[in-house]
Design a protein around this nucleic acid. Sequence first.
DNA 1: GACTTATGTAATAGTATAAGTTACATGAAA
DNA 2: TTTCATGTAACTTATACTATTACATAAGTC
Lengths: 144, 144
Amino acid sequence: MKKSSKFSDVLHILLHIADSPTTVTSEKLAKAMQTNPVVVRRMMAGLRENGLVRSDKGHSGGWFLSCDLDKVTLFDVYEAVESPTLLAIGNRNENSVCQLEKAVTATTQKAFIDAETLLLKKFKDITLAKLHMSIKKDAHNHTH
Amino acid sequence: MKKSSKFSDVLHILLHIADSPTTVTSEKLAKAMQTNPVVVRRMMAGLRENGLVRSDKGHSGGWFLSCDLDKVTLFDVYEAVESPTLLAIGNRNENSVCQLEKAVTATTQKAFIDAETLLLKKFKDITLAKLHMSIKKDAHNHTH
DNA sequence: GACTTATGTAATAGTATAAGTTACATGAAA
DNA sequence: TTTCATGTAACTTATACTATTACATAAGTC
């Protein structure tokens, strides 16, 4: 199964915006992401709705931050991209009448939820500021 | 993203086989799974290769266990279905030259691996015997 | 005020993966 | 030798994700 990289793509975009002294257009971001500007706008829609970024139209328009990097965690970003499914595996029919299938579901479900909970807990522990600080600056090539 | 239920499907099938005093045909299993016999055979191929089950051709043929339910864990089953991807989210390009993307990858990767590790640890702690014992028997309807 | 630049979003097209089906070969038991 | 069962390749759907096109909206420029 192919993994969705929407969550990390959005983080990547946020760092590009954070690193820029001016607004950044969807087109520039799309270049860095090697995709289409429309895809960028679509990915960022939830972040705008959640007040993490804003976007201006017209000349010198584009994206800029509207949140405190110290206050916002990866969990907030995760929610802003509409909390995509974390696990690639699951149960076929959680309301099966088959006792055997129910046993499988009950047993595996616990493990699945524990793993998801751990992951979300980790997200809550990492602020965007912390992520931003982890960048190893490179004078020759730090925009992409 | 649609979750793969191959792993839990195979567990479900194993319980059906474990619960039957005789061999079970792919056709019967397919009925319980509401799918096609060929899909069942395909799903079980890895389990046969790993010695967890065997299958006989011809009259009174079908599937039967060839492992000790006390010795085999969910992890063994997971490996036998070729260790499908556990997480539905990931990074786009783990070898990007962009320092910003690298920072995102490094940070999220840690969280992803921890969650995966936890899940696999849980799998290792659950034997098929334990799973089998968890079935709440129901005299009226215990095959499906 | 017309023009340029930018976003917003609906609609469409393209692509990849998984699931389901058909067809036929193999082999064991009746 | 007929029947029943698996093994597997090939093909067909189904579905979801990604990318693209098209056009409306709005802000700044000339």
